[in-house]
Nucleic acid binder design. Structure first.
Lengths: 156, 156
DNA sequence: AAATATTGTAACTTTATAAGTAACGAATGC
DNA sequence: GCATTCGTTACTTATAAAGTTACAATATTT
């Protein structure tokens, strides 16, 4: 299939929404993402259900941010998209009878699971707001290291 | 596309090859992997080029191991397959003009790169022989921790 | 030498899934 | 009423691995 580019795309869209004064239509967002309005509506639907954005119909309608970007982690966005399959690699079968096949699957899964955890942890460490404030992440992590806790969202 | 199952499949095949007294034909391996001989030949070709297995034609021919499994890491096998694409996720474009899109891509790539490193490290830590000797890996790692170095392959 | 077994390789079809596209009803604002 | 915009469904396209078919090349057996 085509490479799944939904995550970077909606991140891109969120960053534009933050800068917008008025609702952006699917048409406008589609131009920013080099795609068409229908796909934008489909892809943004999950973010709406998660409460990160809102949409209104009719004249003057479109998409708006419902929550500040520093309250939304990349992990939140990924989850809102339905946590799409990360890997193009997989095991050979679900519950094979052959012990050797099971051993091969186990090893493959172990490596993939470890990679998935790293991916997830990386997504959790970063808010969408961090993407356009390159120094903000380091500052926040330094804070966490000192206090030993994750600061409340919204504080900056 | 279909999920890429080449890695677990060739691992499975290698484990069977180790147990075999005589060359295994693509036909036989195909039955073990629930696939057909032609696909086996195609998939094993990389392992042959890497010198991990050998193949001979004609009556009595087939596939044999050329190196002991404790000298072959999962990373070696993955590389011999041509290091197939790990992720079904990707960025939205290669070098977009929009700064926000670049930021979105950068963040996506960072998480993927971190995950890929974890995956690669995990593959490097494990030899194919480890798959069927569940305790061997822990023993070897303990050894590495004590001596601070990776033991020569072949020593067990 | 002929028959048989087996790999090597090329060409083609199938499958799965996101992207892309088109269409239209529903809701909203002018 | 009319134009705008989303919500949703249905359909087509693109991509890459799996799966399949076919056959030349090579090796063994008789």
């Amino acid at each position: 299939m085509r490479t799944d580019s939904r995550l970077p795309r909606v991140l891109h869209a969120l960053l534009h929404l933050e800068q917008a004064e008025e609702p952006l239509t699917s048409e406008q967002i589609g131009k920013m993402l080099n795609t068409n309005p229908s796909l934008v509506r489909r892809t943004m639907a999950g973010l709406r259900e998660a409460g990160f954005v809102g949409s209104t119909r009719g004249h003057g309608g479109g998409w708006v941010l419902e929550r500040p970007l520093n309250e939304i982690t990349l992990a939140d966005v990924y989850a809102a998209l339905g946590s799409p399959e990360l890997f193009s690699l997989g095991r050979s079968g679900d519950a094979p009878a052959c012990l050797l096949e099971r051993a091969a699957n186990r090893a493959t899964s172990a490596a993939l699971d470890a990679a998935r955890e790293t991916f997830q942890a990386e997504l959790e460490r970063v808010t969408v707001a961090d993407l356009v404030r390159p120094h903000a992440r380091e500052i926040r992590e330094h804070q966490e290291k000192r206090t030993g806790k994750v600061p409340e969202a919204g504080g900056q």
